[in-house]
């Protein structure tokens, strides 16, 4: 048994849910979280989106610029959705591939991370089944 923890963009939640159903992992728990990733060292990666967001901003002062840059280069915490999925060992690659497929964007950064953790045991409350049968 494995626990798959995926931190994804909030606007990709419905796509992720759909993808999970399609690979046969319908059960999940989702949480609203705040997070940040690795610092963006190559400013060229975020230059284009920074320009778009700056054009959308109403006030054109220094603070707005600083805020947008901080959001994009990863120094600030930003909202994300955290999915927790329990899976049988053999289903893990399939589910990971589906989550990656659903969440990939052209922005190069900020698409999220997926962690796979071992699980010692699971119990279904209704039937008291434990182990692989509980998933």
């Amino acid at each position: 048994m494995k626990e798959i923890i995926a931190v994804v963009r909030i606007n990709k939640v419905s796509a992720t849910k759909k993808a999970l159903v399609q690979v046969g992992a319908a059960g999940f728990t989702a949480l609203k979280v705040m997070g940040r990733g690795r610092l963006v060292e190559d400013k060229a990666v975020i230059a284009e989106r920074r320009a778009t967001l700056l054009a959308l901003a109403q006030k054109d002062d220094y603070n707005t610029e600083k805020l947008i840059t901080k959001f994009l280069d990863g120094t600030r915490l930003f909202p994300r959705r955290m999915f927790t999925v329990l899976a049988h060992d053999e289903d893990v690659p399939k589910i990971v591939a589906a989550i990656i497929e659903a969440n990939k964007t052209d922005y190069n950064v900020g698409d999220g991370k997926i962690f796979v953790l071992p699980v010692l045991d699971a119990v279904r409350v209704r039937t008291k089944e434990s182990g692989d049968a509980a998933i």
């Binding site: 494995k2 995926a6 994804v8 893990v92 990971v96 989550i99 990656i100 969440n103 990939k104 964007t105 922005y107 190069n108 950064v109 900020g110 698409d111 999220g112 991370k113 997926i114 962690f115 796979v116 953790l117 071992p118």
Partner: peptide, 13 residues
Amino acid sequence: ISSTDEVYTVSSG
């Protein structure tokens, strides 16, 4: 602290 088997970055896979 718990162990983690695998980690994937979504943007690059």
